[in-house]
C-alpha cells in the first residue's frame, strides 16, 4: 500500500477525442490517491478509473461532455487502455490507479 497522497498519471486521447480536450493528445496530471466514494456520504475509496473519468470531465473536458461520458462511464465506442492493456482485462472502472500509470482513451466513432 503506497503512502503517497497523490498519483501522477499520463492521460492520452486519440481517435478524435483530443478535440474535446483542448486539441491536446497528451496530458500529465496529478490526482488525489484517496477520493470520496460518492457525493452523498464521507466514505472514501482509492482513486480508480471511474473516478478518473469524472475527474477528466470536470477538469479537462472543454466541450460536449455527452461525446465522452454516458451513465457514469465512457460512452460506448470509446476504448480505454491502461499501460497499453485493454481495460476490460483490468477490471474496467474499478482498476485502482498507480503512480506512473498511462491511461489512453480512443474514440472509435469517427468515419474511416
Amino acid at each position: 500500500m503506497s503512502q503517497d497522497t497523490t498519483i501522477s498519471l499520463k492521460v492520452e486521447f486519440g481517435g478524435g477525442l483530443e478535440l474535446l480536450f483542448s486539441n491536446k493528445r497528451s496530458h500529465q496530471l496529478t490526482v488525489p490517491a484517496t477520493v470520496p466514494k460518492s457525493t452523498e456520504d464521507n466514505a472514501t475509496k482509492q482513486a480508480d478509473i471511474t473516478f478518473l473519468i469524472r475527474y477528466l470531465r470536470d477538469n479537462l473536458l472543454q466541450e460536449r461532455q455527452e461525446l465522452f461520458m454516458e451513465n457514469e462511464t465512457v460512452r460506448p465506442g470509446i476504448l480505454v487502455l491502461v499501460n497499453d492493456t485493454d481495460w476490460e482485462l483490468e477490471g474496467e472502472g474499478e482498476y485502482v490507479l498507480k503512480n506512473g500509470d498511462e491511461v489512453v482513451f480512443i474514440s472509435t466513432l469517427h468515419g474511416g
Binding site: G14, G15, G77, L81, D84, V104, I106, T108
Partner: peptide, 10 residues
C-alpha cells in the same frame, strides 16, 4: 471496429 482501432493503435 474495436479490433481495427486496437490494431491501428498497437
Amino acid at each position: 471496429e474495436k479490433e481495427i482501432v486496437m490494431y491501428a493503435y498497437f
